[in-house]
Simulated assay, not measured.
Amino acid sequence: MAGQKETIELEYILNTTPGLLFNRISTASGLSEWFADEVNIDGKVFVLRWEGSEQRVEQTVRKENKLVRYTWVDDEELEGEWFEFRINVDELTGDVALIVIDNVDVDEKDDLIEIWNRQIDTLKRGLGSI
């Protein structure tokens, strides 16, 4: 069924600090290191560019060193859709995990998981976490 959505939650253990990770997921300069080719800010909107395409998101939730949610704007197909980054620190081991929550079309789920995996690999390299 076309257009059926599913929420996915992916967890990645990163060898970094919550503060350093939060900078990479919550700022234009941080996001441009791993998430998009170029990220600019237009008011409250982050303008994301990849190989000639452009999309816009607004940072709608921000909790310092904990989570960031971005809501897609100016795109009828994605209207009201969002994705979220959460930082979780294991109390026993001190491991820092990045949890990615995204809403995906069921028929595109595997492709999107693969895209997230590649993006997070880039993030890990940038953090020296591989």
Rank of each mutant, 00 (worst) to 15 (best):
D90L: 02
V73P: 05
S26K: 12
T27P: 01
R49Y: 07
N88E: 15
L14Q: 08
E33Q: 14
L98F: 10
T93G: 13
E6N: 11
G80H: 01
I13G: 08
E11Y: 10
E84N: 00
D74T: 00
Y12A: 02
T93H: 12
E84H: 03
S32I: 07
D107C: 03
L31Q: 10
G19K: 15
V89D: 10
S32H: 08
W50E: 12
L67W: 00
R49A: 12
W116F: 01
V73R: 04
R49S: 14
K109L: 00
L31Y: 12
N65H: 13
F83P: 00
R56P: 02
N23C: 00
L21D: 08
T16N: 13
R125H: 13
T17G: 11
D102H: 01
D74W: 01
R118Q: 11
N103M: 06
E11W: 05
D37G: 13
E81K: 08
A28V: 13
G80R: 04
Q55P: 03
V104F: 03
I13V: 15
V61M: 09
G80A: 05
W50Q: 11
D121K: 10
Y12R: 09
A36Y: 11
I8R: 07
V68D: 07
R69I: 04
T71H: 05
L10T: 02
L21T: 06
V47E: 11
D75Q: 00
I99P: 14
L127C: 12
E54K: 13
V73L: 03
E58C: 09
E54M: 13
L67E: 15
V45E: 15
L92E: 12
L48R: 07
K44W: 05
R62P: 00
V104I: 07
G52E: 12
K44P: 11
I115M: 11
L21R: 08
S26V: 06
L20G: 07
L10C: 13
F22M: 05
D74Y: 04
T93F: 10
N40K: 14
D111M: 02
E6G: 04
S129F: 11
